[in-house]
């Protein structure tokens, strides 16, 4: 008899995932949105505008900016967190595409949340999975007009952050332009340890965010892109106008890991 009971419990567990979607459950889950406000030193980002300056006085414009955000977790104090379901937790933020700058998290359980945590990039597990898990923003063949490909096909893996632009201080490139381009990736290697530029970012809220009945809370995160140059490893455009799959990319990744901060929380 005990065995039957165990079997029953097991079978009900198996049955549970099937009733995850019914509308009856949606009532106690809520939408939360996270907006990435792209800025350069508190000015909103305008592409192709030569109006920004890094700490070395190098003037620059950005022509293309995109980065991946994945494995989003809403924190509940020090220990607990609500993790967005894995398959829905990959986002590509693109300067050229305004809707992409707001993540919509549709199924957040009610409660109070003290911060948000995410990976800038695509975790190593997903970076080595087969093609069936590479849909949407993870499609390795996806190419946009403004930002091109976000995937290295010769060295399987995503470009976590791509930032391109021009600067009067950058040296002439082979096409006669004073351009710079940073393509940063590296999930840690597959067969043996390799370049790892996965960065986990945590932004804490000064006051807890309450998710419950009512309006849709929106968390606004400021993204100060000047930190790519002026972060802990100051980077001179004139010296390193091109950084891609190389050891120098670690410095850029350390820099952009510091570009996120809380701007505001709306609808509370």
């Amino acid at each position: 008899m005990k065995l039957i009971l165990i079997l029953l419990v097991l079978s009900s567990l198996v049955a549970l995932p099937h009733q995850r979607t019914p509308t009856t459950k949606v009532g106690d889950r809520h939408r939360v949105s996270i907006h990435f406000s792209l800025q350069v030193d508190e000015q909103p980002l305008t592409l192709d505008s030569l109006r920004y300056t890094n700490r070395f006085g190098e003037r620059y414009a950005l022509s293309s900016l995109a980065f991946y955000v994945s494995n989003v977790r809403l924190l509940r104090g020090e220990q607990a967190a609500y993790a967005i379901p894995q398959d829905s937790s990959y986002f590509l933020i693109r300067a050229a595409d305004r809707p992409s700058q707001t993540l919509s998290l549709p199924q957040v359980p009610p409660g109070t949340y003290t911060g948000v945590e995410f990976i800038v990039g695509v975790d190593s597990l997903r970076s080595v999975s087969d093609i069936s898990h590479r849909t949407g923003v993870l499609d390795p063949t996806e190419v946009t007009e403004e930002d091109g490909a976000m995937y290295w096909e010769w060295n399987s893996g995503y470009i976590f952050l791509k930032m391109e632009g021009y600067s009067p201080q950058a040296p002439l490139d082979p096409s006669g332009r004073r351009s710079f381009q940073y393509h940063i990736g590296g999930f840690g290697g597959y067969d043996e340890p390799g370049l790892n530029n996965l960065k986990r970012v945590r932004v804490l809220f000064p006051r807890a965010l309450t998710v419950g009945k009512g309006a849709v809370p929106q968390v606004n995160l400021a993204v100060n892109l000047n930190q790519v140059f002026d972060g802990p490893n100051p980077i001179r455009l004139s010296r390193t106008p091109s950084i891609m799959f190389s050891p120098a990319s670690k410095q850029v990744a350390d820099n952009y890991a510091t570009m996120f901060s809380l701007q505001s929380i709306q609808n509370q």
């Binding site: 999975s129 093609i131 096909e153 060295n155 399987s156 067969d191």
Partner: peptide, 9 residues
């Protein structure tokens, strides 16, 4: 160079 680790890619 072994840069690709799954046949799909």
């Amino acid at each position: 160079d072994g840069g690709v680790h799954h046949l799909d890619f």
